[in-house]
């Protein structure tokens, strides 16, 4: 296993596309969290109604695209070139290869996403305050507040889950374009449907799709205050994050089976 890890690490280290995607994850997380915050204006009619914690982490909507690309790039490139055969000749157990890739992916994404979430959050809070999100309607939130800390750490974990989901999808689909399209679709299509379906169905979407993970960003009693006006959490924060990880491990498990049962 150590050999496989070292081997996959050497691959990753020398794959420019993956490194670019990792850097982009951080840049998009910080950049768009700040950008959304700078554009967000208070509405004095509903003072205290917005979730400042969640508003400080909006960059995730773009960072998640970068982690999907990153997760996919770890395996689809190998299928594209045929290098997967060399990989499986060198390490005959597909499970080892997949576990090594998933481990390295997590180890890389988590710290980068954590730093970017925290950085973006802090910058965003400054900008939000400048836009009128100030006490008394909006008490100051800091990184050390339990809900804020949970949201920041949770966002990093959520990005990790999405990256792992993309790795699993890539192992199943064996094609970069198809994997990125499916991964991004899986994250964004539910959002589009939220407004068009009856409330009960929309809540179901928030509970069972990878979107459920966004619950971890909430500090109030609403899940996606930017997207829907309904009150009440469709799913609790940690449970929502758990759903996202169920998707990740489910995709990886199916990917493993596909690698094991289908000829390469």
């Amino acid at each position: 296993m150590t050999r496989t890890l070292l081997s996959e690490w050497t691959k990753l280290r020398t794959q420019r596309g993956a490194l670019v995607a990792l850097v982009m994850t951080g840049v998009l997380m910080v950049g768009f969290s700040a950008f959304f915050a700078s554009e967000q204006q208070t509405d004095t009619r509903f003072a205290g109604d917005d979730d400042l914690v969640q508003f400080g982490l909006m960059g995730i909507a773009f960072a998640e695209i970068a982690v999907v690309v990153l997760g996919a790039s770890l395996i689809t490139g190998e299928f594209g070139t045929g290098m997967i055969r060399t990989t499986l000749i060198a390490t005959q157990q597909p499970l080892r290869v997949l576990v090594a890739k998933a481990t390295l992916l997590s180890v890389l994404v988590l710290p980068v996403a954590l730093a970017a979430s925290a950085g973006g959050f802090v910058i965003a809070q400054e900008l939000l305050r400048d836009n009128g999100y100030a006490p008394p309607s909006y008490p100051e939130v800091s990184l050390t507040d339990p809900t804020a800390a949970r949201a920041v750490v949770g966002s990093a974990l959520l990005l990790t889950a999405y990256a792992l989901t993309a790795l699993g999808l890539g192992t199943i689909l064996r094609h970069s374009g198809a994997t990125i399209a499916t991964g991004v679709g899986l994250l964004f299509l539910p959002l589009l449907f939220l407004g068009t379906f009856p409330v009960s169905f929309a809540r179901r979407i928030e509970q069972v799709t990878p979107l459920a993970g966004f619950a971890i960003q909430s500090s109030g009693d609403r899940m996606l205050s930017a997207f829907d006006g309904r009150s009440g959490m469709a799913i609790q924060p940690w449970a929502g994050l758990g759903v996202a990880f169920v998707w990740a491990f489910g995709a990886l498990a199916v990917g493993y089976l596909a690698l094991r049962l289908r000829d390469v």
Binding site: Q15, R16, G17, G77, T81, G82, R85
Partner: peptide, 9 residues
Amino acid sequence: LDARAFHPS
């Protein structure tokens, strides 16, 4: 097996 089986970068 396949002479093209390298990551191009």
